[in-house]
Design a protein around this nucleic acid. Sequence first.
RNA 1: GGAGACAUACUCAAGUGGUCGAAGAGGCGCCCCUGCUAAGGGUGUAGGUCGGGAAACUGGCGCGAGAGUUCAAAUCUCUCUGUCUCCGCCA
Length: 427
Amino acid sequence: MIDINLIRTNKEKVSENIKKKFQDEKLPLVDEVLELDTKIRELKLKGDNLRQERNTTSNLIGSLIRDQKQEEANEKKERVVEINKELETLEKDETNLNELLKSKMMLIPQIIDDSVPIGKDDSENVEIEKFGDPIVPDFEIPYHADICESLLGLDKESAGRTSGNGFYYLMGDIARLHSAMISYARDFMIDKGFIYCIPPFMIRSDVVTGVMSFAEMDAMMYKIENEDLYLIGTSEHSMIGKFKGQIVKEEDLPIALTSYSPCFRKEVGAHGLEERGLYRVHQFEKQEMVVLCKPEESMEWYNKMWQFTVDFFRSLDVPVRTLECCSGDLADLKVKSCDVEAWSPRQQKYFEVGSCSTLGDAQARRLSIRAKGENGNYLVSTLNNTVVASPRGLIAVIENNYQEDGTIKVPEVLQTYMGGKKKITLK
RNA sequence: GGAGACAUACUCAAGUGGUCGAAGAGGCGCCCCUGCUAAGGGUGUAGGUCGGGAAACUGGCGCGAGAGUUCAAAUCUCUCUGUCUCCGCCA
């Protein structure tokens, strides 16, 4: 959601931005918004004047009654009743127009950063940098689910019976490796100065609708029956919800949080669940980073944040690359975004393990998250990034540390989290 | 989950239908005093947000949120949320 003032003062920039994102069908929205805005302001002025009259008249009635001028008071009362009638229709129109305006504003994309590469869709995303050599070993790497099963670390069949497709039992050292990674990710971010946070795993509907659109909500969120509660799809939901409608102290900025949570996703309309694997599932765990900062610092944080994820995976001996989202693939709320992708020696290509975004003030405007500064309040910038999501991150570690003898080398940094274990073997 | 109490500005707090944007205090700004000194005196300021206006200035909203009663609501009614106390239940 962009600032309506920007449309008032510089609608060319807004239109230009829409074109950059190849959403030409949205171009008429700009003028529609302007027209609505004018109409609403007219209505507001008219209403405000009526309310002013009502206020003064009501006060007058008070003093008339005190002076025992009952008749005069009754006359005035009639006038106020008239005003209220008039206001009723006026207010209804105003509410309707405001809703219409808001729905149109929601469709106008956030102004993207000048550095975002122009492109139509995900095929035009741009590789920024590779970190580590994408090594293809001279032996074959089996499918990750097969590796896990061969080490008695995965049971999808039972999960199918208890919960259905898209669920899994992780067991033994594979489960331990998964937990080790999440714990290590937590400590990794704490070392970077982030505050560790365990948020609520369920949130109310008003928070849900604040952080996503209805379409997204339908496709992602699980609802608890007979309760106004939804299972979170990512801790970002509860972490950003934490600040909804709040005014934070400027001296507390930047607020850098790293949150752990299980994540639940229906994955309706996504590319489909994996029948055998753990790549796309209904339930996973994630260590996330969320930052609220001053607007002028957001780009600096953005670059720091994706770098943290790169460093994290490099410390696990996983080669990665960063892939920048091109203009057309960038979600409407985002200013700039990139994926961190891990190398798959089996598929000999990179696959997504995390996503780093700066939303500028778009999310803050929508949720009214402000900081109190010397010259009044201002909207903060919000950013979020994955440290690691598992089992997806687990796949990367397993494939890149798989040994020819069918065992998995435990990356050094994870060994302390595995009771000193250096290798995952069947025995 | 049950019962009760409460929710007012940065903080504490007064306020049960009109003269309330809201007393008072702390805080904060400025000035004075400098042996009542982890103090004293004087004085000033008061939030947010959306409008109108070239500007000076000015209007609406706003007392946890939403709805209602009324000519008029911080004040009365209802719903919701949160906090505290007691009870119940538990990891």
